[in-house]
Amino acid sequence: MSLTKDEVQHVAMLARLELSDKEVEKYTTQLNDILGYAQRLQALDTANVPPTAHVFPLQNVMRDDCVDPSMAREKILANAPDEEDGFFRVPKIV
């Protein structure tokens, strides 16, 4: 399996990353190296191994349905790049 430049472009677009042609070249090589290394796992026989849902041997971690106080709005908005009238203000979407 080998990653194409188009696929790298697509993944970059999904992550909202703008890459130069040179960067696409570089990351295609690097990502293919990583995938190639991971490819070694394919040699293992996993026919009888269930897919891993989580790396910890834990299950059913839950809490009761109780309301806790929320955080003060000033604190919530303190790190917002922009705010207006208690809202997070965000740039034009479309």
Partner: peptide, 10 residues
């Protein structure tokens, strides 16, 4: 949404 200059999130 279409004509909006910016949006506000709650």
């Amino acid at each position: 949404l279409a004509g909006a200059e910016y949006s506000m999130a709650d």
